[in-house]
Design a protein around this nucleic acid. Sequence first.
DNA 1: ATTACTAATATACGAGTAC
DNA 2: TGTACTCGTATATTAGTAA
Lengths: 234, 234
Amino acid sequence: MMIAPREHDSIDYNELATLKQLALDGGLGRPVHVSCSELSGKLGVSAQTVSRRLRELEETDHVSRQLVDDGQNVSITEKGESVLHGEYYEYRRLFAAGDEPTLAGTVTDGMGEGKHYISLDGYQRQFEARLGYEPFPGTLNVAVGDDTPHRDRLQTMADGVRIDEWSDEERTYGAATCYPVTVEAGEGEFSPAHILVPDRTHHDERIVEVIAPVELRAELAIDAGSEVILRVAE
Amino acid sequence: MMIAPREHDSIDYNELATLKQLALDGGLGRPVHVSCSELSGKLGVSAQTVSRRLRELEETDHVSRQLVDDGQNVSITEKGESVLHGEYYEYRRLFAAGDEPTLAGTVTDGMGEGKHYISLDGYQRQFEARLGYEPFPGTLNVAVGDDTPHRDRLQTMADGVRIDEWSDEERTYGAATCYPVTVEAGEGEFSPAHILVPDRTHHDERIVEVIAPVELRAELAIDAGSEVILRVAE
DNA sequence: ATTACTAATATACGAGTAC
DNA sequence: TGTACTCGTATATTAGTAA
């Protein structure tokens, strides 16, 4: 049987263990000063192996390094952090199921742009087939501001549903990913709903667009300024 | 340089990945039906490798297996679950720091047994050296009832401080582990405090014993029946 | 279809060494 | 002290095969 070749920028579990150790040693926010022999003890492998693993992690863009006299300063890249975070969410699903991650934000007046796009037939057909409903023609725009870091981790928090790009005679319409959420507002809540993240984001990254089979503003009696919580489904 | 030999019952990261996949496939509570080729696809290795890893996991007592015609039913053992849970808590420290695990319970009248033991000099010396305080001569007994599963995971939730066994002319006194906690009661809270878990547990497993440098009942104005929360330190 | 064995090979590891 | 080579060896992996 043919096994898919390892991608050149992927990570194996021993490298992941090394990356996790760097994170545990404080490497997530800032660079961390380490030496191979120090990590060697913590990981239970030789210093040579640690040296090689760190070089591999650098090669695959999971860390960046700066060699100094008494060791090296290692920074975990965004890609490295994303890998660790994905791992975290897998374990989270195992042991903290039910206590789902959330995004808190404020409803804002939309720009009317999303409305036009999601009404297009090329998108509607996919929504219906892959989300199981035909979205109300309009998006609920939620300013997630401080929760932006969470927004960036949506892809590791839930299984996104892909919407493919398509074209008509005139132009091409871009692909997007939909993340399943429950929308909470005051006492009420509604699902199914999805956060719609276009591959090429059109506007402010601190705002997410939510689609649902109903008009959420009416359904939940909310309007610009209302506080809502988007609970990410598992 | 000498590297410590791998212990015969330890787990390497590739086996851990396999174990995690079994858990994600629903193997935590109950046995899960899998086949090597099915796991092969999910793990990106050959079916032969999966077969070997499953046998290794069985060998090291992380799973138990039952071969059937169309695959095998795999159960993750307590040991296997503990390994996964430990991994979960490491990632949790990375991404959910601050939001610490807790044990909720009710203060119960102690049996006066703990009091006698912790006052003994052989223990006191260790407490002072390793916990940084001399415990008040008496334990706060907390019935954790429903949180018993959490109790069993104390060792993966925090770094326990070991208290060694010792003996005098007459007998040997057993070893124990202390887990750092903050005790919350009503508006007040106190730390440092530790949950004391004897290696050979003397009494009801649904009760944990808490020690602190002060008399917690007086300090927090609590008594039998009071609700307390033990917040496990990271 | 399975699982598991054997044997060939690919990969990872650590000792020794250089800088 | 560091890191990072080379290189012989140990380990892990897969192909092929058997049951």
